[in-house]
Computed example of a mutant assay.
Amino acid sequence: MMHQRGKSLFFSFLVLSTLVSWSSAQAVTKSRSHSHSTRTHHVTRHITHHVRHTRRTRHRRVIQCVAFVQQSTSFKIHGNARDWWNRAKGLYARGNLPEEGAVLSFRGTRHMPLGHVAVVRSIINSRTIYIDQSHWGTNGISRNVRVVDVSANNDWSAVRVALRSNGNRLGSIYPTHGFIYARPEKAPSVVKHSTLIAANENFSNETASLPDSNTSVFETDAPNRGLR
Results as ranks from 00 to 15, higher is better:
His116Ala: 02
Arg82His: 04
Gln71His: 02
Leu9Ile: 11
His42Gly: 09
Asn224Trp: 11
His111Ile: 00
Arg121Asn: 04
Val148Tyr: 02
Arg183Tyr: 08
Pro175Asp: 03
Phe106Val: 05
Glu99Cys: 06
Trp84Val: 00
His49Ile: 14
Ser189Phe: 02
His111Phe: 04
Asn200Thr: 10
Arg160Glu: 02
Thr38Gly: 06
His3Arg: 10
Phe13Asn: 14
Gln133Pro: 04
Leu114Arg: 10
Thr44Asn: 11
Asp149Ala: 00
Val15Pro: 10
His193Tyr: 12
Ser12Phe: 07
Thr195Tyr: 06
Arg87Gln: 12
Ser189Asp: 07
Pro184Met: 03
Leu16Asp: 10
Arg61Pro: 03
Leu163Ile: 05
Val145Thr: 03
Arg45Cys: 10
Ala152Phe: 14
Asn125Arg: 02
Val148Glu: 12
Leu91Cys: 08
Glu219Gly: 14
Ser122Tyr: 06
Ser189Asn: 06
Ser105Val: 10
Ser105Gln: 08
Thr215Met: 10
Gly167Trp: 12
Gly171Ile: 03
Thr57Phe: 11
Gln133Trp: 01
Ala81Cys: 13
Cys65Glu: 03
Cys65Asp: 04
Leu114Val: 05
Trp22Thr: 13
His193Met: 01
Arg107His: 14
Gly79Phe: 07
Ala25Pro: 10
Ala67Phe: 09
Phe75Arg: 02
Arg169Leu: 12
Asn224Val: 04
Gln133Ala: 03
Ala67Trp: 13
Arg55Asn: 15
Lys76Glu: 14
Ser172Ala: 13
Leu114Ala: 11
His135Pro: 07
His53Val: 03
